[in-house]
Design a protein around this nucleic acid. Structure first.
Lengths: 159, 159
DNA sequence: GCAGAGGTACTCGGATACGCGCTGTCCGAGTAAATTGGG
DNA sequence: CCCAATTTACTCGGACAGCGCGTATCCGAGTACCTCTGC
């Protein structure tokens, strides 16, 4: 079970977006350059975030992306779901009904499917309980100069 | 994020293996026929379970697979890990250190990585808390004839 | 000096190739059972 | 009738193709800004 690499990019990029002043948009190319990532591919991920309503995009000069909601209202689950999709990792194909021994429909849902869904629900709850604001606060506590470093790099490159 | 289809096969197959009498081995071809699965591919998954020490294999006539431990000692996490691998779904590539702005090593681990690992740990704990015996008991409570149906089909085919 | 039309440069957005891993299949090594021949 | 060597058939185990999704890239549509011209 492998999670797409774009998730890591999206999470770090969203974190960086929490540090730009409100109302200012940052182009995908600038966001990608900060981590030396392929700009076009990061743009693709940002499009997914835009479709999910997590960021808003603006075309043209001075355009780019910015968070659509305050960081307190964006959970890690939102970001992961936007990139990886909403469908669960484990997909029950009902093989129990495929054999020669089994006949009609079943009274209850597949027990294995229920167990796997329960585990995945725990994972989702954990991710949903953590917002971008939480991560932002923790990073600022461990590396207080991180926001200024990003903002300075942003304006330096833009000058 | 997609989980391999072999996980579902392995889980159902392990459940079926809890219903065969102790000491008896069942060939992969027989186990596959019960769900109309590709025999050779299920064999591949069973090999992974054997490498993980969950099942023991015996070659030759009257050979096959059987559980290596009592169902109480086999968790769903064991099966999933045997098929999908031990490495976590989210892999931190430390992109924070790749940019032009960041320089030396970091005092603490990546906050995003920690959050993702915490969520994945919750998922693992949930899966580890559920044993094959639990699933077996629940299935037998909801469909009491399931064990006999499998055992009968097994002996009928073998007759 | 000011307003407006035109040009320009920059952005997102979707359509298009490439590569790796999961899916699926095959054949060979090894073993236990069945068979056959002899004592 | 009993035993042992041989043959046989069946199993796992790893090596070999096919396909789909994630990865990576490019080019076009659209827009805001800047410039130039006329008033």
């Amino acid at each position: 079970m492998r999670m797409g690499e774009g998730v890591e990019w999206a999470l770090h990029t969203c974190l960086n977006l929490t540090w730009v002043e409100a109302g200012q948009a940052v182009p995908a190319s600038r966001l990608a350059a900060y981590y030396e990532l392929p700009a076009a591919y990061l743009n693709k991920q940002l499009q997914a975030l835009a479709r999910a309503g997590l960021v808003v995009s603006a075309p043209g000069p001075r355009g780019g992306f910015q968070l659509a909601r305050p960081p307190e209202r964006v959970t890690l689950m939102d970001v992961v779901a936007a990139i990886e999709g909403e469908e669960p990792a484990f997909r029950c194909t009902e093989i129990r009904g495929r054999g020669p021994a089994e006949g009609g429909p079943f009274p209850t849902a597949c027990v294995i499917d229920r167990s796997m869904r329960a585990a995945e629900l725990a994972w989702r709850r954990e991710l949903a309980s953590r917002t971008l604001a939480d991560v932002k606060a923790e990073v600022e506590r461990e590396a207080p100069d991180a926001p200024a470093r990003f903002r300075n790099w942003l304006s330096r490159k833009g000058a």
